[in-house]
Design a protein around this nucleic acid. Structure first.
Lengths: 114, 114
DNA sequence: ATTTTATATACCTATTAGTATATATGTCGG
DNA sequence: CCGACATATATACTAATAGGTATATAAAAT
């Protein structure tokens, strides 16, 4: 499970982490904020947050003057996964015209396989 | 990691399994076929295949007259994941007009969060 | 000084990925 | 029919990882 794509899928394979991402979509949140609704200790939430951070879904601001390190969602991290899944859809679900439409997009030119 | 969505993400969090799916996209394959290019023992491949099967990505035909049980891709299994990711894109990547457009759709009314 | 926020460490348990090995079952050549 | 081979599965084992806890520590806010 070392490559970046695997890390992203693995990070999402947990309902707690998906719930955290859903809340981070609305606003930046500190560790304590994230832990509040999650019947779980703070260190446990910190571990989940670290998984999301390693996978690239989240960055945390540096503690300049405050102790709090709010986590912020990184939208771009989704593109790698979305590309892979889109490729699957094109292969398997997509009708031929849909494949044709995909091949016209700029992303299609430089795409690698997993 | 027990819910269906988690099982799907977890199943894709492994390069070996993604490679198996990629080959299954082209044709049905038996366990021996799948194992051939994968420097791994057959029982190990059988375990990976079982993970894909439990996640719903694959079904296997019943052994009526033959010993071989070719695995077949189940395209529909992708929709649950694709829906979740699409919801993320709408939330996070989408511009405001895109969000507005989504909120007009019927799915938006009854949508639950993960 | 106390409280809040965050992190680090050590520990436990369950799961995952892989192996080796054995066993059932069906195909095919005599 | 029978023995050999191919396909698939089951079991038992090891090693590593994941998810969680408790506890201790550091630093900043009040």
């Amino acid at each position: 499970m070392s490559d970046s794509l695997s890390a992203k899928f693995a990070a999402l394979a947990d309902p707690t982490r998906r719930a955290m991402l859903a809340r981070l979509a609305l606003s930046e949140l500190t560790l304590a904020d994230l832990a509040k609704p999650l019947e779980m200790t703070v260190p446990a939430v910190a571990k989940h947050l670290a998984v999301l951070e390693r996978a690239g879904f989240v960055t945390r601001s540096r503690p300049t003057k405050s102790v709090a390190r709010p986590a912020k969602l990184q939208v771009a991290a989704f593109s790698e996964m979305a590309d892979w899944i889109e490729k699957c859809r094109v292969h398997w679900e997509g009708s031929f015209d849909r494949l044709a439409a995909y091949l016209e997009t700029p992303e299609a030119k430089g795409a690698e396989d997993a």
